[in-house]
């Protein structure tokens, strides 16, 4: 059996220090070891975006990332975006604009949207659409999701 590797990284603003197998996928580490189940496994091949997390400010499919690759980096999952007592404005907008149906793509969508707005607080509708193109949604037709992101963008100064 391969030897475990020691890794240190910042997860949702908390320091994590663990030993993991070198071939452990980040998604499995998050879901199975830490019970951060908001990161969803939809395809395991980087096609659907349900497992999107933010690594050093960029979105990544956590099914295509090995846990040791985040050593020394900052990772944000949906659990780090907001909580019951303090929703992120994007989360509030998704609720208010009817952007949630089955909800399985929702965490990944939110993290893609968060990354977009952090980089570009006033995106055009087209830029919003492009930013979502790695996240598949089968329920909404994307309209209400784009509306929600646009609403938050419009509130940005």
């Amino acid at each position: 059996m391969e030897e475990k590797m020691k890794i240190k990284f910042l997860l949702n603003k908390k320091n994590i220090e663990v030993e993991v197998l070198p071939n452990r996928r980040l998604i499995d580490f998050l879901r199975d070891d830490l019970d951060l189940i908001g990161t969803k496994l939809g395809c395991g091949e980087g096609d659907c975006g349900a497992c999107t997390v933010i690594i050093n400010g960029k979105t990544a499919n956590s099914c295509l990332v090995l846990a040791p690759q985040v050593d020394g980096k900052e990772v944000i999952t949906i659990e780090g975006l907001g909580d019951y007592d303090k929703l992120d404005s994007l989360q509030q907008a998704f609720i208010d604009e009817g952007a949630v149906q089955c909800g399985f793509c929702t965490p990944g969508m939110l993290l893609s949207a968060k990354t977009l707005l952090d980089e570009n607080p006033k995106p055009s509708r087209e830029e919003i659409m492009r930013s979502m193109s790695g996240n598949l949604c089968r329920c909404t037709g994307y309209v209400k999701i784009a509306n929600a992101i646009e609403k938050v963008a419009n509130a940005n100064n």
Partner: peptide, 12 residues
């Protein structure tokens, strides 16, 4: 507002 929306946006 949908009953399930809050938990879904929080990933819970």
């Amino acid at each position: 507002i949908r009953k399930d929306a809050l938990d879904k946006v929080l990933g819970k």
